[in-house]
Design a protein around this nucleic acid. Sequence first.
DNA 1: GCCGTTTTCGGCCCGACTGTTTTCAGTCG
Length: 587
Amino acid sequence: MENADVARLLSETGDLLELTAGNAFKVRAYRQAAQVVDTLPNPVAELIRTGGLSEVPTIGPRIAEHIGEMLERGDFDEHERLAARVPAGVLPMLAVPGLGPKTTAALWKKLHVVGVAALEDACRSGRILDLPRMGRKRAESILEAIGGHLAREGRIPLHRAIAHAERFLDILRSVPGVVAAEAAGSVRRRRETVGDLDLLVATLDPDPVVRAFTKARDVATVLAKGPTRCTVRLKGGLQIDLRVVSPSSFGAALHYFTGSKTHNIALRTRAVRLGLKLNEYGVFDRRGRRLGGAREEDVFRAVGLPFIPAELREGAGEIEAAEKGRLPRLLEEEDLQGDLHVHSRASSDARSTLPELLAEGRRLGRGYLAITDHSRSRPLGLDDEHLARQAAAIRELDRRHGGRPRLLTGVEVDILRDGSLDLAPDALAGLDCVVASVHSHFKDSAARMTDRLATALRSGVVHVLGHPSGRQIGHRDAYGFDLARVLDAAREAGAALELNAQPDRLDLNDKNCRLAKEAGVPVAISSDAHLASQLANLRYGVFVARRGWLEKGDVLNTLPVAELRRRLGSRGARSSGKTRAHKGVTT
DNA sequence: GCCGTTTTCGGCCCGACTGTTTTCAGTCG
């Protein structure tokens, strides 16, 4: 059972408890625990083994017991007991926006409405009006919400959310009187997918801001509109929340609307303990005097903590780390010196020439680019001979142009089904950077896939394991494999794991980056560019790395070119020693 | 159900908007 499954059952228990009028704080306890489990980097099974589960905030003895039961048999008593009391169709009703636990429970208990279809009927027939505080307008908005709920395509990938946010921020910043405008919420925390956008504006004159916002291109519906809050839905279905505050509250509001919810509750609770009050307008003492709020730092200072970067605010240990002065110094995009996975036109699915890649690399300030085209298993991929010729041409071009970025020779060699590589070890041995990746047989068992990856790493010629999990966001799930074992193999081989920065890959993900760091395995953040313009995608990799608590020293391509060459070269020597030691196993 | 530099019991983050009311419950973030 994965953490996500455990989280789902805990969260569902919260829902069921709420529908059956359980203690509201108990409801919250289950939901908080679910949220925390979902963001834990380590599998809960491992935490139970090592006794670390009781260290996790929001997980007390009861919930720990429930989790133990879940791992043993896939469910737990409390959840089953509650589920037996609530018909299966009721939970999906709770997911309709605008329907909360009170209304859903009343629909089910008083009108015997069960299921979203039955809910729709009750709205159309007017039967729903029999409920207290239920009028025509609410019935209509529920109907509309059902339509949107069924049609909506869930969460959108981060890079698209950023594009929407930047367009709206441009509009908002151009309104006279606007002092600042920023994206908050999960976009600012750089989650890999985003449910809706949260935008924040600082001004003393809210009216023109709200007007410009609701009249912007692509706005389909205005869902709510007040002087400080306004919500719209775009034609594509994306919901955007705008908050407007005075400049003196901007920092407190930015902190508050950035979340996560778990992080906020923890910080507010901490404030209460210190005799303070924290809200989106500022920090206040017992007598209601305002202590600060213009800057986000004010909030942290008031509760005696150093500034916590937005990417860490998931309630997954950042507050404890801040207390102990153990916050990581997160990687910055400027720390990256180069790119270790770039395709040229020698790959059939890539478009840019070496000079085009050089020009764009120079524009972006990269110190080096490793040219890593596909091997022969892929359509028109390089065989030993072509690869040698290409490497010679790259060395020659690098000599001729001289400056930055330096060109490194390389290849993205396929890892075949049995874990062997698609090109001869001799052909790979002289290259600066060998990326090895899986591009086939994604459905093989986790055990087989783990062996396959570990075998490839033990070949002694691999520098970087490319897009290790194979997932493509919204398209293909990660294949199953045992990351801990692959990390062991990588550490022994002196190899790095890639954080592929293509916005639909982001692979390793944030949690796995954290595990790689714990395991002492370096991460290589690579664009996997198939077009010169995609070299800029490294920024998305940096976002994920920061969410994964990575620092400069955890990332291979923060090394300047000379040191990088030394490191890659010595890895070859060290791991070929290993290979000899295990001769017969790996070849 | 969780948690503790006020507490092992008794608290538990806080405010805005909507619709239905005529003072506020429900929902959301």
